[in-house]
Amino acid sequence: MSALTTLQISPARWLYLRLSRSPSLTTGAAIILIVLFMAIFAPWLAPYDPTLQETANRLMAPSQQHWLGTDAFGRDILSRLIYGARPTLLLVLFVVLLMAPVGITIGILAGYLGGFVERSLMRITDIVMSFPRLLLAFAFVAIMGPGLLNGALALALTSWPAYARQARAETAKLAKSDYLAAAEMVGIKGPRLLFGHVLPLVLPSAVIRLALDLSGIILAAAGLGFLGLGVRPPTAEWGSMVADGTQVIFDQWWIAATPGFAILITSFGFNLLADGLRDLMDPRND
């Protein structure tokens, strides 16, 4: 008895042990938290207004007044970088909330129910999967006008099928397993079976995929911004900042490099987080 009870440790200590064992999770989580902090407290952190134009000080190199220099309109790059975290994270949040749950639910239903339900859900998935993502985003923007949400919507609408596919394959494999047979025998069925028993086994791989996809989505959003189809100027956004910087890339390289670096670091953070989360979510990993 005493040997069993001493295994109980406080939640804080448990978290500390887990984090110290997985450096990638700690680093990834730290990067994402810093970016999140920047986005939330942008008005207090930014030294200048991100849209304030000082044409006298345009294309300045990093200095005491402007730590990362100024762009072609004399706007402070550091301030724009800090404000630029907002659309990026908003996009990520939008996609996470909208796309992953839809994809996973469709996949679990198709995999567990099988038959006609599976065939029809998977054909819909096939159709959506065959849409080219960036072209659909262009079409959305062309119809509804440029803007962050229109671009994000297009990205979200085209990225759920991968989750549905993955969840279906895993669920179909589980449907024949003894765990589910045992659960069925004791009278567990319906949503309780699907979301209480199937979901926990499907979720880890979906979370990893999500975190990997997020870096891709940040890049896609930056791509939309770069093409001038994302956030409308003068709002700061990392992709459009890179686009602005390319005009002067040989003389003032830091203008394109700093937002590019921000994109790189954030994508990297999500990738590390994905790697670490997998370890954390598997109880067998003690």
Binding site: D178, A182, V186, P200, L201, R284
Partner: peptide, 16 residues
């Protein structure tokens, strides 16, 4: 009607 399965390694849900 209840049942005890052959393999106790696969009849208990690993995440519960």
């Amino acid at each position: 009607i209840q049942m005890v399965f052959q393999d106790p390694y696969s009849s208990l849900h690993p995440r519960h």
